[in-house]
Simulated scan of single mutants.
Amino acid sequence: MARIGLFFGSDTGKTRKVAKMIGKKFDDETMAKPLNVNRADPDEFAAYDFLILATPTLGEGLLPGLSADMEDESWEEFLPKIEDKDFSGKTIALIGLGDQVGYPDEFVDALGELNEFFSERGAKIVGPWPTDGYEFNSSEAVGEDGNFVGLVLDLDNQSNLTDERLNTWLSQIAPEFDLNV
């Protein structure tokens, strides 16, 4: 089994694309192949000590899932399957995708929901990201320190910054995950 689990939820395929970009940067011993949470086994998911989790925010600040009018299950349906698991001793880095122009009042809110869920279960969340360079009104993904709780990507309006932001963030979390980037 790889050392780091890489899981995502996706509706349009953009989050899947980002997860695949990350996966291609590492060998199979380091990073597991990206896996959509609608295909994930809860016990296998919880077996990783290191996780990178990615989610888009849908509609009015929702986690992806059936209530957000998705055709398939996603984070909304997966989280209840692992709500009784203890994530103490696990290190988790989060990625959120959103549209700051179309949804400035709930920009990457789903990222904040993932942060809250795993923090409440003892996980160490790493990889905060500055809010500089984004224009939005409100976000549940902004932590007490004024930074996002994870990497934020806007492929709708700032796709030209995705590679740079992703590489910078991976370098930032590398010491926490014992990665060579």
Rank of each mutant, 00 (worst) to 15 (best):
D49M: 13
W129D: 08
E44A: 12
L111F: 01
V152D: 13
W129P: 09
L53C: 10
D84P: 03
E29R: 15
F148V: 11
V18N: 06
K124M: 00
V142H: 11
S74C: 08
D145E: 12
K14Y: 09
N147F: 04
D69H: 10
D72L: 15
D84H: 01
W75R: 09
G13R: 11
L53A: 10
T15F: 06
G65V: 09
G98R: 01
D69G: 09
T15H: 05
G143A: 11
L63I: 11
T12A: 00
K85S: 11
D84E: 03
G122S: 02
V37A: 01
D132I: 02
K90S: 11
Y48P: 13
P130W: 05
D28I: 14
P34S: 14
V149N: 06
P34L: 09
F117P: 01
N137M: 00
D27V: 12
V142D: 07
N115V: 03
M70F: 08
G102D: 00
F45G: 03
D154H: 01
D69F: 06
D28R: 15
V108S: 01
T12W: 00
Y134P: 06
S67V: 05
G146M: 13
V101L: 06
K33S: 14
K33M: 13
S119R: 00
S67L: 10
G150T: 12
K85G: 10
D11A: 15
M70Q: 13
G143R: 03
Y48A: 12
G61M: 10
G23L: 06
R121A: 02
K85N: 10
D49W: 11
G146H: 05
A47E: 12
G61Q: 04
F148K: 08
D132E: 12
K81G: 08
E73C: 07
D84R: 02
D86H: 08
A40M: 15
L63K: 08
L51D: 09
T12C: 02
G127W: 03
V142K: 09
V126R: 06
V149F: 05
D43Q: 10
M70T: 12
G150P: 14
P128A: 15
E144C: 14
G102P: 00
D109N: 03
L114C: 02
A46Y: 07
T12V: 00
N137I: 01
G59T: 05
S74A: 10
I52Y: 15
G133R: 02
F78K: 08
A47P: 12
E71H: 10
P64K: 08
G23M: 12
I52K: 14
E77Q: 06
G127A: 05
